[in-house]
Design a binder for these strands. Structure first.
Length: 258
DNA sequence: ATGGCCAATTTTATTGGA
């Protein structure tokens, strides 16, 4: 199973690029974030014609997450299912070929002194509780835009980002806590070096200067992660006409029908 | 080359992204 995650930054603005990438790359399962559209606006027909089913949790203008898969997507749920705020479409789960797949779009946080950052921290608490409620002995992957830089290898200009809403001691500790639950950062399982990023700012020549961050992650339980054979970042997707500011990140597993 | 923000919106400025 080739599993991918991609913050696409508007599926309507990126439809042609997404379809070209699906055709060329042929991932089995794709977790998407920042659809920026409602379910009514989602291009189901084009995705289906490309050979994929889609489970979509949409929202007008902001957020929005989906799972695309070549195989049926079963037992789809949206949100955390707790008693917290569900007005922002940031989580969708489904089962594909016996593996539980979760697509997440973690809150950005804007500034550390903002209400949005408070919401980010509270949301991460809910994420942890949500995961703790799953069977982590079973095959499961939770993939998406975490808006967290796990460690210094994952940032090009440490001084510029340290202490901000994406990279600080509290967040790296919270990320490690997810790993302490038993989840594996599947990209790091195959690549230990720094300088490999999944996001570059549109502004200030972020990509040409490689001022990047690794903030998009595929975490998996050992039952699944132990079968992974390689991981990739499709850096070329950040090039050319109308790119998303994120590149797709992928992990190959010896799991399922592929 | 990969190039100096981009996308959506009850649009002509504002909000959010990271």
């Amino acid at each position: 199973m080739l599993l991918a995650t991609w913050n696409i930054n508007s599926i309507r603005a990126r439809e042609e690029r997404l379809l070209n990438w699906l055709e060329r790359r042929q991932p089995d399962v794709v977790c998407l974030q920042e659809l920026k559209c409602t379910e009514q606006q989602f291009p189901y027909d084009a995705i289906e014609a490309a050979g994929y089913r889609a489970a979509v949790h949409g929202q007008k203008t902001y957020n929005g997450v989906a799972i695309l898969a070549k195989s049926p997507i079963e037992d789809v749920t949206t949100g955390f299912g707790d008693d917290g705020d569900e007005s922002q479409a940031r989580v969708i789960s489904g089962t594909v070929e016996g593996a539980r797949i979760i697509s997440v779009y973690v809150v950005n946080g804007k500034r550390v002194d903002s209400d949005k950052y408070e919401y980010k921290l509270a949301w991460l608490e809910r994420l942890e509780a949500f995961l703790a409620g799953h069977n982590l002995a079973a095959p499961l992957a939770i993939c998406g835009d975490y808006n967290i830089v796990p460690d210094e290898r994952d940032v090009e200009k440490k001084e510029a980002w340290e202490g901000g809403v994406l990279y600080n001691e509290d967040l790296t500790t919270r990320f490690r806590r997810l790993l302490d639950l038993g989840l594996v950062d599947t990209f790091r399982r195959h690549h230990q070096e720094g300088g490999l990023y999944s996001w570059w700012d549109y502004r200030m020549l972020g990509f040409p200067k490689n001022n990047g961050l690794r903030i998009d992650h595929l975490l998996a339980t050992p039952a699944l992660a132990d079968t992974s054979t390689d991981a990739y970042i499709d850096r070329d997707e950040r090039k050319g006409q109308k790119p998303s500011d994120h590149a797709p990140v992928l992990t190959e597993f010896e799991w399922g029908t592929r």
